[in-house]
Design a protein around this nucleic acid. Structure first.
Lengths: 236, 236
DNA sequence: GAGTGGTCTAGACCACAGA
DNA sequence: CTGTGGTCTAGACCACTCT
């Protein structure tokens, strides 16, 4: 009986998780089959199935049809790295977010940008450069190219009120994105805009977003190393 | 009939996803109820329920009991950043992984380390420092403190055969981890070990792992900026 | 062929929101 | 009160693995 405040499938999940976390079952070990767990918990197969399926989604176990359920190799710890709208992030910390727009114009794409956006070099693209500030301190330099086909009204946005990310999310529904994070030294212009020395290391995030059939935008976001870090956590 | 290669719940998911991605349904809009989708697709409620529940898990819709299902505010884009064992990662690229151990000893924790590991400053901890190389090129400097209570045999490991991460995963089952990524300049020792200039920016990852009741390990991993980047992607 | 998971159904009872 | 989602059951058929 116990206190069954939790749904049955959660109880099965918790029980399984405990065995894995305690080391009683090691990676590669077989987890009791659905039939066995049905008996043990006195629940239907759908319930056990849901429990194990969700654990598999979370990466704790591996399931192979016809073979069985095993404790996953936990080598790849993974956690959600959230990429958030900078405005929202700053405001959530209870701070003031302001923006200084350095450039907002339509210009020919050029070879490199055209290739990333899937356009011709002579096609026009929107190019914005701005600095985001938290309580007046520069925390992000944003250099962004936007595909006019994906967000025709982009340049008309008042970027002191709305961030580019927000405008794009609202007007070019996101279907796909990729990013990479590197360490780099700022260019002269970036250093000037962020008010840092050219020798101060920075985190640079390159982001590329796809909306339906178009590559919507490519952006390079530069964060001063001493003022920003990406963090995350993970729980079994 | 169409080609129903996909399971029914996947078809419901795909149909719903398309409406959201295309912008036909905007954030906040109501998604058809389970009953409505049952009719439309001619499937049982459990099937529709699974489809919508999974979309909710993925963050695409929000469900409120008694109220309904709505398109989620898509502000929080997130993706899984995987933190993997360096050895596995190098080998998977088809390259050779070697290690140069600079230090492997038991020593008093000291204030700062003791605090992170939940020990006293005079308690002994295991301290290892090593450089990981991919085809002979240094790619990671690893400075790690290990809680002896969590992995008593740590120092006996042959680190030229097994990585610290792997040993810990096998002997101190992981229950929790947190990390942060920063940009920094290498210390003199790090620069020397990695064979880079002191002015070359690096990515530094601080990682803390918990195993059961113990903080198992804290590590600082330094990657030369020009030789490494973190990347990820996600799809709606 | 026996055992496993993947999917699906047609019901059911409940908790909750909103009129 | 009606409509919604949250959970659960006792079956079922299938595809797959392993021996």
């Amino acid at each position: 009986m116990a206190k069954s405040a939790l749904p049955a499938y959660e109880q099965v999940k918790a029980w399984t998780r405990r065995h894995i976390a305690s080391g009683k079952w090691k990676p590669g070990d077989t987890v009791p089959s659905e039939a066995a767990l049905m008996q043990q918990f006195g629940v239907s197969r759908m319930t056990v199935n849901r429990a194990l399926r969700e654990l598999a989604n979370e990466g704790l176990v591996t399931r192979v049809q016809g073979s069985g359920t095993r404790v996953a190799q936990l080598h790849r710890i993974s956690s959600r790295l959230s990429i958030r709208d900078i405005h929202e992030e700053v405001v959530e910390r209870g701070h003031e977010h302001t923006t200084r727009v350095l450039r907002a114009a339509s210009e020919p794409a050029g070879e490199e940008v055209a290739q990333s956006l899937g356009l011709k070099a002579s096609d026009a693209v929107f190019h914005t450069v701005m600095v985001h500030m938290e309580n007046g301190v520069p925390i992000q330099y944003e250099d962004r190219y936007v595909n006019p086909a994906a967000a025709p009204a982009y340049l008309a946005t008042d970027f002191t009120q709305t961030s580019p990310t927000l405008h794009l999310l609202q007007h070019a529904p996101l279907t796909e994105a990729s990013y990479s994070i590197e360490a780099c030294l700022p260019t002269a212009q970036e250093a000037r805009a962020l008010a840092i020395k050219r020798t101060e290391p920075c985190l640079a995030m390159m982001r590329r977003t796809v909306s339906g059939a178009h590559v919507a935008s490519i952006a390079r976001l530069v964060y001063p190393g001493t003022r920003y870090s990406f963090a995350g956590q993970f729980q079994a």
